[in-house]
């Protein structure tokens, strides 16, 4: 059972309230507890006592329905991309993507692999890239603070970009996922 209807395009009517909303959103980021690659190992020290990301108001949630940030932590295999699309589309608006590591930027050390993507922003809208192989927890905190300032400035609109250019993203996704057995939009 799923809904076949595509989501509505975001409208800009609430612009004044968005400033207030963005202030609240930036200071309370909930991250989907989902790791795609080796970078997920850097999130453990980040959300436990050593680096403690809860002091910035960032915390983990177990399901995408309750979260608003998705971290693509390192290389993304084609098989994983299918699951990531499901997870990303289930997150409610507004939603942000933080991409870690060289692998998401240009393939990194897997640039010639037969099964990992080289350029992530062709498949999903990335708001902040954190480079490094792997980025240390300090670098990830820096990426989060950049994401917060982008949200406060109202510029973290990757999810709007995804809605407006859904056909472009779908076309790229279907180019690498041959057995596409997902619904039109994963509610």
């Amino acid at each position: 059972m799923y809904c076949n209807k595509l989501p509505d395009k975001p409208d800009d009517r609430k612009k004044i309230w968005d400033k207030v909303d963005n202030m609240a959103r930036a200071n309370s980021l909930w991250v989907t507890a989902y790791g795609t690659g080796c970078g997920a190992i850097e999130l453990r020290p980040l959300h436990t006592s050593r680096f403690d990301m809860e002091r910035f108001g960032i915390a983990m949630r177990p399901t995408p329905r309750q979260a608003d940030v998705l971290i693509i932590s390192g290389y993304l295999a084609v098989k994983t991309l299918k699951r990531v699309i499901r997870v990303y589309e289930q997150i409610q608006d507004p939603k942000y993507i933080l991409a870690l590591g060289s692998c998401t930027i240009n393939g990194g050390m897997y640039y010639d692999s037969y099964n990992t993507l080289n350029i992530l922003d062709r498949y999903l809208p990335v708001d902040v890239y954190v480079n490094g192989c792997m980025p240390r927890p300090e670098a990830i905190i820096d990426g989060f603070s950049l994401l917060m300032s982008k949200i406060k400035a109202g510029k973290a609109d990757g999810w709007k970009h995804y809605m407006e250019n859904l056909e472009y993203y779908r076309e790229n996704q279907k180019k690498v996922i041959h057995n596409w057995d997902l619904p039109d939009y994963n509610w």
Binding site: I105, N106, G107, Y111, D112, S113, Y114, T116, L117, N118, I119, R122, K175, V176
Partner: peptide, 8 residues
């Protein structure tokens, strides 16, 4: 890889 996933 270059044919399928492209290159930056």
């Amino acid at each position: 890889s270059l044919r399928t996933y492209g290159e930056r």
